[in-house]
Design a protein around this nucleic acid. Structure first.
Lengths: 208, 208, 208, 208
DNA sequence: GATGAATGAGCCTTCATTCAT
DNA sequence: AATGAATGAAGGCTCATTCAT
């Protein structure tokens, strides 16, 4: 077990402080002074660990996206490869994970989204995240519908996920995680995806 | 007597310049100096007409939302009251109006959305806009499905609209207006809404 | 009777507005915009009539000092040349004239006093005023005491007058005009001036 | 570890620079840029140490008033409690202390007096100062004359002090400290205070 | 590693003044 | 005569960053 340097302590500490400050005053109004104060340490040290404010912001966004990725991947790992409906549910569920719908995270996420339009580094991170969601969905959907339809469905589901997040960001009551998942489940049922998925699962079991 | 009526010229001019600057550098980086330069007039005059930067931003957001409202309402006026499917299409279509999917407008809209989380004046404007969309949709949907289902559908459609907008904001290709409307149309067909609407329309015609 | 041009209307109107604004926010915070608004006319017009802000301020101070001068001179005219005590009382009384102890006037006067230290035009006006007060007092005092004592007394009385004014400027209750005059009268009695003055008056009457 | 204790160096340095700038251009024209330049440091640092321009001005006035207080108190400490005439002289002398009649200090003092009429924080400081002078004088005077007369005398002496200061502020030759004290001494003699004080002192000595 | 000191660039705003009508 | 339009200079303040300790 490696000895923990200050770096391993300070970096998460500052990233968390950044998110809290963004939650409170918004990204444009977040200053290194506020973040330092919130973390209980000198603002100067941000330069030491992140090379500047933008470095800290990038690291913070990376952290947010990584948590999202983990939420999805860890759920996928618990679901059988053959259970297509379960896997789609896992992907959607990961996006509405308890940690992900925390108002602080939601606001941070939206703040970065807006900022990403004018910051190359953030833009790249955002694109990767978008593609990853689409990719996860398409992989599963392609197993039950033709490729072009899979793309259409994946795009629609992604739009639903982001739309619910977006509206939740401004809603004082925040995101209703359960309702969100039901909404998407309902969409999949309407599009007959769940039925097809179960059917395919049975076939494969029989095929073995 | 001074030159009169400059207010009607300057205000839209400055609002448009604001949107262009937000499009280029983002809301947090937009300065009154840039906006003034873009409009070809002195930055000082912003105070003359809007009482300050925040006044200009609020007016800009108000303008964006008003354009959106007009796009929806003008389409609704062209559709027969009895044509429920047509009315829903009008509402959706208004949100993907040519002027509304202009990348400049989309970015401005998202920038304000992010900002609204920390600015009371913008927040109120945003809420009104959200509610208006939901309201428009529910009025039509209630005519074909029970109230609670109408609310669910309206919320889902709104999420789809916003989600598509949001993803379009970061997509280099922008929003594909036609595809967006097809996506939502497809959802409505899957939910059997279009069918029910046509049916209701026939009934009413027969009723006369 | 000459027809009144707008100049004769506007100038006093603006001067009065200036004093009211100084009373409210102080000289450093008084802007031409405020003054114009208070007078109910466009600020631009100040340049028309006074050639700029400093011209207006100078005219205002001139007006304040002229009113003071009138208050003194008009009282002197009502007192017999031979009544030395009465003449001194007139000079003092003029400085505590009803119009002069108006809080608005007091504040304006003090504001200009402070400003005069760094403004040549105001400085000259102020000096003339100072000298005039001293001169008035010395002329009368020389008639009852030797020249060098007259100067000393005049200086002391002037200091008392200004000191009372100054303290009154900051006192929420303002200047107590009657008490002020009693204070100086008491000083003159203590210095035996009143007695000497009455004595001289009797001598002169007898001399005729 | 950073350079510590700069606060004790910077604060007096900036306060002194403030007074010098006020002396040169007046309070309304004094800018943080000028003050910083005069002190040889960056204007930004004024915020660091005083939280803004008004904080600096308040600290400057506080400094001026404290110096005045020290001048009076230190003189009082050197005078025997029983020597009433000496104590009054000490109070007056403190107000015309060498440091206090420095033209720079006099102008600063007057500038603040004018400003205090429209600034709550400065107003309070000024009132405390006024009351302190009156209080010092009344305490001594009450020992030789009835209370109501003590108040009258104290007020008159205070007016004389302030009047001499005020006139000195605009007089190119400044305040003649010696003449000022003589003037007030002369007043006290005329009012028989010195005589009464000496008498009381003799009584008390005899009483022991 | 950590921090207070210090800086300089930049921003919003105010304001006196000028101009066209 | 009078005014709204418009400007440009300047001021206070914020803030990310660098530096010495």
């Amino acid at each position: 077990m490696p000895k923990l340097g200050m770096s391993e302590i300070r970096r998460p500490q500052l990233i968390r402080a950044t998110m809290r400050v963004i939650h409170e005053v918004g990204l444009p109004n977040a200053t290194v002074a506020m973040i330092g104060r919130k973390a209980g340490i000198s603002p100067s040290i941000i330069n030491h660990y992140f090379g500047g404010k933008s470095g800290l912001l990038e690291a913070t966004m990376r952290s947010v996206l990584k948590d999202l990725s983990i939420a999805v991947v860890s759920r996928l790992q618990k679901v059988d490869k053959g259970d297509i409906a379960g896997r789609i549910e896992a992907i959607v569920g990961g996006n509405f994970d308890h940690k992900q719908v925390d108002p602080m995270v939601v606001k941070t996420w939206l703040a970065f989204w807006a900022q990403a339009m004018h910051d190359k580094a953030l833009f790249r991170l955002q694109r990767v995240n978008e593609q990853r969601l689409l990719s996860h969905l398409r992989i599963e959907l392609k197993r039950v519908v033709p490729e072009h339809e899979a793309l259409f469905l994946a795009t629609t589901i992604a739009a639903l996920i982001d739309g619910i997040w977006l509206r939740g960001a401004l809603n004082p009551q925040g995101i209703n995680s359960q309702l969100a998942q039901q909404t998407i489940q309902d969409y999949l049922i309407s599009k007959n995806i769940i039925h097809l998925a179960k059917q395919r699962q049975s076939e494969q079991k029989a095929g073995h």
